[in-house]
Computed example of a mutant assay.
Amino acid sequence: VDGGGSCSGRVEILEQGSWGTICDDGWDLDDARVVCRQLGCGQALNALKFAQLGQGSGPIWLDDLNCGGKESHVWRCPSRGWGRHDCEHAEDAGVVCSGFVRLAGGEGPCSGRVEVHSGEDWTPVSDGNFTLPTAQVICAELGCGKAVSVLGHVPFRESDGRVWAEEFRCEGQEPELRVCPRVPCPGGTCHHSGAAQVVCSGEMQVRTNLPNTLFRFFKHKILLKSCILYQCMQKSGS
């Protein structure tokens, strides 16, 4: 709804053939962390209450959610149980997530070292086999225009020295980096001389052309009704 991205919005779950919302009673950043991790959307920046992203319709599936922040799925968190609540849709919960990828250590948000979020923290991406089409997807996803250049030989952070254990093989037309084909590095170790660094053409802009994204899981499904990240953060006062 009014979407500009798939990593921020009102949280809805598909259960028993019906989309429903989560009540904001007890809704906090730990709950939002589980949702953001489940969707592959990076870290939770804000847990939104009082239907700040608009009211949903249909059932309210969960209430008094009490996630510890480490659960794999939001429906595994303690709650009143499916469909049990004392709420109205004016209390629908939402989240603002950071997204899967960022450019760090540059002069601004549109240049720097490529890092992706593992669900726990940010990890640099190897410059081995890192291509301009992959950079193009990253720049477009971040609202930073087109990829101008791809640079290597950027030292990894001395604090841990870790590197993402996959290579991204984007064709350049994908809407987001996380949907690009990936190839695991042999033995879990990517050949590299440093972290990939990308320079994009423009300053960060709000994206308005991303389609709503439906995430499918084995038992249940979860949907973030999209909103423009900037608007979400403005409404939440962050």
Rank of each mutant, 00 (worst) to 15 (best):
L48C: 14
C190E: 03
V74L: 10
C23F: 04
V96K: 00
V137A: 11
R10W: 08
L103W: 08
D31L: 02
G237C: 15
R37K: 07
V35C: 08
H89Q: 15
R216F: 14
E71N: 13
L45T: 01
L62N: 00
Q43C: 08
E167Y: 13
C232S: 11
Q52H: 04
R207M: 03
D127V: 04
S238F: 10
F218K: 05
D25S: 02
R178V: 08
P155A: 09
F156S: 03
K146I: 07
Q55G: 09
E176I: 15
V96R: 00
P133C: 10
R182D: 02
L14R: 10
E107T: 10
A135T: 01
A195S: 04
W82M: 12
P59K: 15
L65H: 04
C227G: 05
D160C: 05
G145P: 00
G56R: 02
L151S: 07
G119T: 11
A104Q: 12
S159E: 13
T21V: 12
C67W: 02
V1R: 09
A90I: 07
T134G: 11
D24E: 13
K235A: 13
G56P: 04
F156T: 10
V11Q: 02
V137Y: 06
P133A: 10
C200P: 03
G17M: 01
E167F: 03
F215V: 07
P133K: 06
K235E: 00
E115L: 07
C67E: 00
R33P: 01
H192F: 07
P184S: 10
C185P: 02
Q16I: 01
F130S: 02
F50Q: 03
L53S: 00
R33A: 13
G4W: 05
Y230S: 13
S159M: 05
G194K: 05
G99N: 08
G69Y: 06
H89M: 04
G83W: 06
A51G: 11
V198N: 00
R182S: 14
A32W: 01
A140R: 14
G112V: 05
F218G: 08
S8R: 00
L48V: 03
L39Y: 06
L177Y: 05
Q231N: 12
E120L: 13
K70T: 09
F100L: 09
S18H: 14
F218S: 13
R157P: 08
G202M: 15
E115S: 08
R157H: 15
C170W: 04
I13K: 09
Q43G: 09
K70Y: 15
T213Y: 11
H73F: 13
N129Y: 09
